[in-house]
């Protein structure tokens, strides 16, 4: 990566951080007011809502400091380039999104098809997506998928007496 594109990426990163500070600030303000509605008690000075309010106030103050500091670092042109830079960043990390998406899907289907089958499909398919594809790798992936799905289920149920979801079938 050349110096110029590195600087552009750094600036886009700073804008992304700025957005995160705004999200944290909005959430802390919202939760501050939500905490103020928690009923207080006659038996103590601070109620159940006081500690979250203190934490939210501190988060809010720090977020403002972070926002001011971040705004100083970002040039006017940086905002215009932000969308392109984020798109490029996401394209470079497409495997992360595929892997996390597969994990989310896997977790959603565990209660339906059960741990063993869901794990076998998840492990095998993610390995196939990530691997350099050749016969040896596919055989290794298949064995690993079987061992860490049905094998793990057997280990937990028989040795540790922890029963993993069986599914509705």
């Amino acid at each position: 990566m050349s110096n110029l594109s590195h600087d552009k990426a750094m600036e886009a990163g700073e804008i992304a951080r700025l957005l995160s500070y705004f999200i944290i600030l909005i959430a802390s303000v919202g939760l501050f007011f939500a905490a103020s509605e928690i009923p207080t008690s006659r038996f103590e000075t601070l109620g159940a809502g006081a500690f979250p309010q203190i934490v939210c106030a501190a988060i809010g103050l720090l977020s403002i400091v972070a926002i001011v500091d971040s705004l100083r670092k970002i040039s006017y042109l940086g905002y215009g380039r932000f969308y392109t830079e984020v798109k490029a960043w996401m394209c470079r990390r497409y495997l992360v999104f595929i892997t996390l998406g597969a994990l989310a899907l896997y977790i959603l289907v565990i209660p339906i098809i059960g741990f063993s089958i869901a794990s076998m499909i998840f492990i095998f398919s993610v390995q196939v997506i990530l691997m350099p594809r050749n016969t040896k790798s596919i055989v290794i992936a298949l064995i690993t998928a079987l061992v860490f799905s049905f094998g793990l289920n057997w280990l937990f149920s028989e040795v540790f007496t922890v029963f993993l979801p069986r599914g509705v079938f």
Partner: peptide, 22 residues
């Protein structure tokens, strides 16, 4: 490529085994 999905499955087992809650 062999490690990542396997460890993710172990993480799922670890998170579930604590309270047996989906």
């Amino acid at each position: 490529w062999a490690i990542v999905p396997v460890v993710m499955t172990c993480c799922v087992v670890g998170a579930f085994a604590l309270n047996n809650r989906v």
